[in-house]
Design a protein around this nucleic acid. Structure first.
Lengths: 213, 213
DNA sequence: TAGATTGTTAATCGATTAACAATC
DNA sequence: TAGATTGTTAATCGATTAACAATC
């Protein structure tokens, strides 16, 4: 496994999700073609990706779901729970704090942080703590992953502080590129941009349909 | 302009954001190199992308920001406000309903919909309406864009209904591939997947650092 | 066995980057 | 003018797909 770039790893996780669904539907074996259909890629792509991750099946017999999932979980890391913090408890941060979808992925939100003292709730199951305690918390609890949901103007500064304290991976909701060392992993979710591109292509489709008339 | 795929259009929007920031900083002219640095691509890429969108500058003189933004806004469509609905007012849906970042992009959330009648708030500035009124609302208000934030199990069915009523572009938060005709634009935001890939690469980096010791 | 599917190599495709003539 | 930057073409790079030998 040489490179394992982001797009490849993302596909692997999608395959795994799809294969879990098939398992829950009662299937025992799958072919590359089945997985491809479920995820929306070619079967060549599935076999190629599997090959890069040393995931093998049986010539003629496809893949045994349980074996496949076991091997995927070893490569992709499922069996351990990951502690994650949320920095910035505005609308987005709070929604993510309550989001149900993380648990089944082994992702546990352990705390939120906000600069607004009135939001602090120390006794909640997932507490919101004052921003001043952020660095100390990261260090003592050895937190590696954080969600960044602060206003655009604060984002770069807060990222730097998180990294300084020991964070190595960040999911950033501020709609801008943040600079960071290359040993820090940053994924960006830019909600305005997602909608803008949808609006663009819907406009293009409508334009085309208009021209066809 | 032949193809204009998603990745290209996304970059164009990023360039525009960056150029607006430069304008607000007081700059009047920019070079492709400046834009490239701000967005994190090569200057060749910027000039190539501009060329595909018929955005031209002055040989030797770079690009005049105001002219550039004017032309970009013509191509990318800024000057019109887009009405968007949110279907599913759980944690995520509600956060997006209140999210401040859309307004400056000309995106206006006009209503939310939820199957839970107790969430209905007809008199709010952005009302939440009962799910039964969804199709009628889309048709009478000619809504083209929707945010889909319902539980995974309902997502495909609700998408079909939205498209049936006239929706042409959807931002989907359900963590699965939804099937749709090719004249409908669907962008997916998969929050669990984003975190999973971050966790994967952080693990890889730590593994590498361990091996180096 | 005959037929079907994997695993991998080679071919293709598309996107990015480099290079440089045009030119301000 | 000399120098610098655009705009575009050609080269490179990487990712996807097609093809098919291996084999169950």
């Amino acid at each position: 496994m040489k490179k394992a770039n982001k797009i490849l790893v993302t596909r692997l996780y999608r395959y795994r999700d799809a294969i879990y669904r098939m398992k829950y539907m009662g299937l025992v074996k799958v072919f590359s073609e089945n997985i491809a259909d479920a995820v929306g890629v070619t079967s060549s792509q599935v076999r190629k990706d599997f090959s890069l991750f040393k995931l093998s099946g049986n010539k003629r017999g496809g893949y045994v779901i349980d074996d496949l999932l076991k091997k995927m979980n070893e490569s992709l890391g499922k069996n351990r729970t990951q502690d994650v913090i949320i920095v910035g408890c505005g609308h987005i941060g709070t929604a993510l704090k309550l989001y149900k979808g993380f648990e089944k992925k082994g992702i546990r939100i352990v705390a939120g942080f906000d600069i607004d003292e009135s939001k602090v709730t120390r006794d909640a199951k997932v507490p919101i703590l004052p921003f001043q305690e952020l660095s100390q918390f990261i260090k003592t609890k050895k937190i590696k992953i954080g969600i960044l949901a602060v206003p655009e103007t604060a984002a770069q500064q807060v990222l730097d502080q998180m990294v300084q304290a020991g964070i190595e991976g960040i999911l950033n909701f501020a709609p801008m590129r943040l600079s960071h060392q290359e040993n820090v992993v940053v994924n960006n979710v830019n909600l305005g941009l997602e909608l803008e591109t949808i609006i663009y292509f819907v406009g293009e489709i409508e334009k085309k349909q208009y021209e066809e008339k």
